[in-house]
Design a protein around this nucleic acid. Structure first.
Lengths: 227, 227
DNA sequence: TTACGATCCGGACCGAGGTCCGTTTAATGT
DNA sequence: ACATTAAACGGACCTCGGTCCGGATCGTAA
């Protein structure tokens, strides 16, 4: 019993399901995502205050200034409340990005082409990458801070949605080849940490990353355009 | 002066340069890697004891059991000493992997083909990936624990060596295309965290990852074999 | 309105990474 | 041998993420 208390957090752990999804969870093999557990009044109020406080702290001191204690204090709430609601720091930051994420999901799942349905798969892949790149460049601070710990990085709902979307398109664009592995590879190119490194530390302009994405999609899908 | 003491660690910060390299640093645009700062006798002794203690802890309790305090205690040394020598936890774990890393570098930089020089680039790329995959599967625990924080992940010397190696081969195999971006993409496939997810969490056999790598190399390099 | 159980709250508490600084010690020159 | 000094040492200390649990509060049903 070395690691006794390590797994079960609070008695009734009712932390929210990380991120709302716009697709049926069954399609993605996610555990049931009990949507909107319908919080108690005080809990809902505190949740709102916490998100607002966190957003303010991000605006004022950057994502690095978002300390769990600071958020709790700014929201005039106990520290335990923050953890009960959001599970951990990553959960809080993720919740902060949730709005933008849902809009993005709506765009590529059911928005107008070429991002949404209606365009040929390769076109949609190109649009998807460009959208991801631009979104990452905008919210880079938060996205980096919200980077989950290594053992959860591939289980984050938002990521799974994006991944399966890419896999779907890719299986159409390149029916041969291991769709699961290739989609992981493509998603790797869009990893915020990599984007940050290339743009901020290596000074690459966004256009180069976009061109690189288009080229990568072509190569992976087996298209033979300009080269 | 909010973040006053956050950047400069100890007065004369003489933490070792992360990882010895077998190639001249100039070739990789690394800051001078003052090889072997020639530690004082006591420092060298303590360094050895710390590494030994850390290795023992890994063997006994897994990488998760490697606490800085535990290592210090096991080596009969003050905690500050650990940090002065290795900078941080990641540095210590990295030092633990250094031996294996140097052997690996020697193998792909100057060993026998197809991993070393002498085989055609695509061959060498395939061999490189397979070697990385197998190595990661072996030392997965440590590699995961040694995962650097997001802001340093792409500056780790070992990674830069591997990256520039892949870039070199790739520029020969696919002279068109953005070698820098494509090599980052390939390296992404070999990320230990991804390997761990695919093998341990998704249950994929190593052979599938190897086949996926070969296929990916073919696609990226523009080869048209079986498909 | 009251009573009751489920849920939530708060903040003391813990562990681990990382830092500081007064003290000790190894190398070097005399 | 001895003085000198740059480097190394140790462990108290700080911060921050995360946990626990006794007590307050909400929703509900009588």
């Amino acid at each position: 019993m070395l690691y006794a208390g390590v797994m079960s957090a609070f008695p009734p752990p009712f932390t929210e399901p990380q991120q709302q999804l716009l697709v049926a969870p069954e399609l993605l093999q996610l555990g049931k995502a009990e949507d909107e557990p319908c919080l108690r009044a005080d809990a809902a109020r505190n949740r709102a205050r916490l998100l607002e406080a966190a957003a303010r702290l991000v605006a004022e001191h950057g994502a690095a200034g978002v300390t769990m204690e600071a958020v709790a204090a700014a929201a005039k709430v106990g520290k335990g409340t923050v953890f009960r609601r959001f599970g951990d720091r990553t959960g809080l930051l993720t919740a902060l990005l949730d709005h933008s994420e849902k809009k993005f999901q709506a765009a590529f799942l059911s928005g107008p082409p070429p991002l949404g349905p209606g365009a040929p798969p390769v076109e949609r892949l190109r649009a998807f990458g460009r959208a991801m790149l631009r979104r990452s460049v905008d919210e880079l601070d938060l996205q980096l801070a919200a980077e989950p710990s290594a053992d959860r990085r591939f289980s984050v709902p938002a990521r799974r949605v994006q991944l399966s979307h890419v896999a779907l398109l890719l299986r159409q664009a390149a029916p041969d080849g291991d769709g699961e592995l290739l989609s992981q590879t493509l998603m790797g190119y869009l990893n915020p940490v990599l984007i940050h490194h290339l743009t901020r530390q290596c000074g690459m302009p966004l256009e180069r990353l976009e061109a690189g994405w288009d080229d990568l999609v072509d190569r992976v899908a087996g298209v033979q355009p300009s080269r």
